[in-house]
């Protein structure tokens, strides 16, 4: 009994530690005081204020554009690359396989500087385009790794069976392989999306005028002080994320139940 009590207490503490900052943030988004120190009165004013703050809204929209485009493109490229690296044999395959991990382990700041110097060298004007390009670049390895984990030796058998039944390579990929590796593709895409959503370092180096993203905007506020409308925005973002994830989970569990 005592053992079980300790176990539950431990779990409680872990969750407390993980979620306390978020709870505080949500509470303070309803705080009438403009300082994030004392809670005065309950108010919706920051939510109203939020929609008046054009810079904040713009940066949020930018962030969404960057995250969505880079996620879609990097997921497509990453999935095809993972499949190609898995299916075909070619010289230097082993080397390329290990090179994939380098962008993952390399410090972001190094990646940021190198991307900046390449854009300068190519005389690319810094802006949304360069941010998206950079986000695609650092997301691809994550997608590849995630998709690759979903490709097992079983996949070869499915492929051969489909070939035996007369399926073209495109059909094999679309009808057989893609459904099998879908969990890997989805988790790769989610990973890419969240990485892009909160990236500060690489965006900092590759952003230009008018292409401020939300993380950059918040980061720049540190000098002047963070206003509670940011709290309000993050609360909205949290709510959206929460609803999306819960509905995905509900849909999936319904699907499973339907099969049984």
């Amino acid at each position: 009994m005592k053992h079980k009590l300790l176990k539950n207490l431990f779990i409680l503490l872990v969750f407390f530690f993980l979620y306390l900052p978020i709870i505080v943030l949500i509470i303070y988004s309803f705080n009438s005081s403009s300082m994030n120190i004392l809670f005065e009165n309950f108010t919706f004013k920051w939510y109203i204020e939020l929609f008046k703050n054009n810079d904040l809204i713009m940066s949020f929209v930018n962030t969404l554009i960057v995250a969505l485009t880079s996620t879609i493109i990097s997921t497509i490229i990453g999935t095809i690359s993972a499949y190609g690296l898995y299916k075909f044999d070619f010289p230097l395959k082993k080397l390329i396989n290990s090179l994939i991990y380098i962008p993952i382990v390399i410090p972001e700041i190094v990646l940021g500087i190198s991307l900046l110097s390449i854009y300068t060298l190519m005389k690319l004007e810094l802006g949304m385009f360069t941010i998206i390009l950079s986000h695609i670049a650092f997301s691809i390895p994550f997608v590849i790794v995630s998709v690759r984990s979903a490709l097992s030796s079983e996949t070869v058998y499915y492929e051969e069976a489909a070939k035996d039944l007369g399926a073209s390579n495109f059909k094999i990929f679309k009808d057989i392989i893609l459904p099998v590796i879908m969990p890997g593709v989805v988790s790769g895409a989610i990973l890419a999306f969240t990485l892009s959503l909160d990236d500060v370092v690489i965006s900092y180096f590759t952003a230009g005028p008018g292409s401020n993203t939300l993380p950059l905007y918040i980061y720049s506020m540190i000098k002047t002080g963070i206003t509670p409308d940011v709290n309000a925005l993050t609360t909205i973002m949290l709510t959206i994320t929460f609803i999306t994830l819960t509905s995905i989970a509900v849909i999936q569990s319904r699907k499973i139940r339907k099969r049984i």
């Binding site: 079983e154 058998y157 499915y158 069976a161």
Partner: peptide
């Protein structure tokens, strides 16, 4: 090519498509 031969195989591990 295997896709064009009027021959079909039942594989050792069956290789039934899991998502169908």
């Amino acid at each position: 090519d295997a896709t064009k031969r009027e021959v079909n195989t039942i594989f050792q591990n069956l290789a039934l498509f899991p998502k169908m």
